[in-house]
Amino acid sequence: MGRVAGAVTIAVALMVGLSANPSGAQFDAKSLLLKAWSKKDAIAKGAKALRKGFSDLTDEEEYYIGRAVAAKILSDFKPVKDKARTAYLNTLGQILARYSTRPETFAGYHFALVESKDVNAFAAPGGFIFITTGLYSNVKSEEQLACVLAHEIAHVTLKHGLGAIKSANLTQAFTIIGTEAAKEYSPSQVGQLTEAFAGSIDDIVNKMVVSGYSRGQEYDADKEALRIAYSAGYDPSGLVQFLKTLAGKSKKGGGAGFYNTHPPADKRASKAEKFVSKKKMAGSEDPARTKRFKKYAL
């Protein structure tokens, strides 16, 4: 494709050259050819330079970033070896993901329960989602769990994790990728790419675990969670109920993690409640779902 396009570029350049020199007497084919090739090169470079921000990362690159972020999280939080609950989380989560704005990622959505008393959840790029046992034990219904998972899915679909990557790391990576046509890199290029990769992973983990997303991002993820849960047939007020539970605990002075990485739960609950009412997203708990949840509750 590139060769054909290149040949056409040259041919067009020759035609232009010909029309500019009707007599043809002064026509220098060699220099025009060189000029055309350099123009083609400039166009190619221009196309590569288009990759500037995190949204330019491919789904495949997002997947490898997500795997490394997940590996870091699972190094700090031990996964709970509970096949039944893990299957329950994955079934519910994968249904919800199909109602999101990104139903498919490079390798799909995956959910895990991790050991921690902190009330927290993490969403690594590409769809690796973690719920702590501390958070799970505060969930009182399948509606609430669906809304919590939908909130994390929303962080993935809105690419909040990728957005934490500092531009210097992206620029470094895109510069190396942009100048190299091959998919296999030399040891020195791999070293440079790994450096940018490691920097990107640290940026995301730091944002997710230490500094937290901005209030705006959390509210956006809440709104998207309400849309996802409602679309799938869940009562979106499950999110309001869960946030109110957390708000109550917060007043008693309990909890780290979740409170450090999110805006105050009572404010989120209030905003979510208004959104549900404004959009008329009515729903109700179902006895079958309530019964099912009891089997998997912590």
């Binding site: 990362l57 491919t58 495949e60 690159e61 490898y64 970033i65 795997r67 490394a68 990576a173 895109f174 990728i177 190299e180 998919k183 296999e184 890199y185 791999v190 070293g191 790419l193 790994t194 990769f197 490691a198 990107s200 992973i201």
Partner: peptide, 12 residues
Amino acid sequence: GKGFNEQVEKDY
């Protein structure tokens, strides 16, 4: 297959 790929993950 370019950019942050399997080769980079292996090195990381």
